[in-house]
């Protein structure tokens, strides 16, 4: 589903952040990408979603056989790629329900499905909210405005549940969450798991991986994937910290 080859990317100020990332994600898999602060995790998520401000200097990303980097951010979203933001943006004056219906209908049009009217949308939204144990008042508020940190992350997971992406990328969605919110996030990912879908969980901590068991765990360091393994790699990192990576590199 996703094939990243030798990906190099830098910021507008010229600092190179990604220095040759290779990663293959197959349909049905959940991958975790871990790594210390500044290792390039969020840059990788941003480049995949098409966030402005990054320049890809080498390498390629194929998504379902197409050149992902040639697509505009909204085309990527309509093709089934979803980024759960580390810092969801507050948008005053835009009603959450109105926004999400417009987004869902954009995605549905692309999939060749009929658009939902306000009533149909509300019904579908209520069902998802209930499934995820999120309060309905979320719908009527302006997008993320005045939301607590936990509410913002729940809103991201709710959007993901509604849009049913093929490839979900969660950028540190678990940071700063209490155990209830963490369960909501985990629940959202687990409900989406299927042989046709895939997810990339970018995380600093192993905690989320107790609830969503990944097929593969990668360690990103200094803009490269330095180790890959199964769930036990996450446990090892938790025990020994990221410092051992540098030790390993020094050896």
């Amino acid at each position: 589903m996703l094939e990243i080859t030798n990906l190099h990317a830098r910021l507008a100020d010229g600092r190179e952040i990604l220095k040759g990332v290779d990663l293959t994600v197959k349909a049905g898999e959940v991958h975790a990408i871990m790594g210390p602060n500044g290792s390039g995790k969020s840059t990788l998520a941003g480049v995949l979603a098409g966030r402005p401000g990054y320049e890809v200097t080498a390498g390629s990303v194929a998504y379902e056989g197409r050149d992902l980097l040639a697509l505009a951010p909204d085309e990527r979203a309509r093709e089934g790629l979803f980024l759960a933001f580390q810092y969801p943006v507050e948008i005053p004056g835009v009603n959450n329900m109105y926004f999400l219906r417009a987004a869902l209908n954009a995605v549905r049009r692309q999939r060749g499905e009929a658009e939902l009217d306000a009533g149909q949308f509300l019904k579908a939204a209520r069902a998802k909210l209930k499934l995820l144990d999120i309060g309905e008042d979320l719908l009527q508020r302006p997008v993320n405005v005045g939301f607590s940190g936990g509410e913002k992350k729940r809103n991201e997971i709710f959007q993901m549940a509604m849009l049913e992406p093929k490839l979900a990328i969660l950028d540190e969605t678990d940071s700063g969450l209490d155990i209830d919110a963490l369960r909501v996030v985990a629940n959202g990912v687990n409900k989406l798991r299927s042989p046709e879908r895939a997810a990339i969980l970018i995380t600093h901590y192993q905690r989320l991986l107790d609830y969503v068991v990944p097929d593969v765990v990668h360690v990103l360091s200094h803009g490269r994937i330095v180790r890959s393994g199964d769930k036990s790699l996450a446990t090892e990192l938790e025990c020994r910290g990221y410092a051992f990576l540098d030790d390993a590199a020094a050896e």
Binding site: R51, P73, R76, R78, V89, F99, A103
Partner: peptide, 10 residues
């Protein structure tokens, strides 16, 4: 960017 990342055109 947030709105576009959810599928809305520019």
């Amino acid at each position: 960017f947030y709105l576009r990342a959810r599928g809305l055109t520019a």
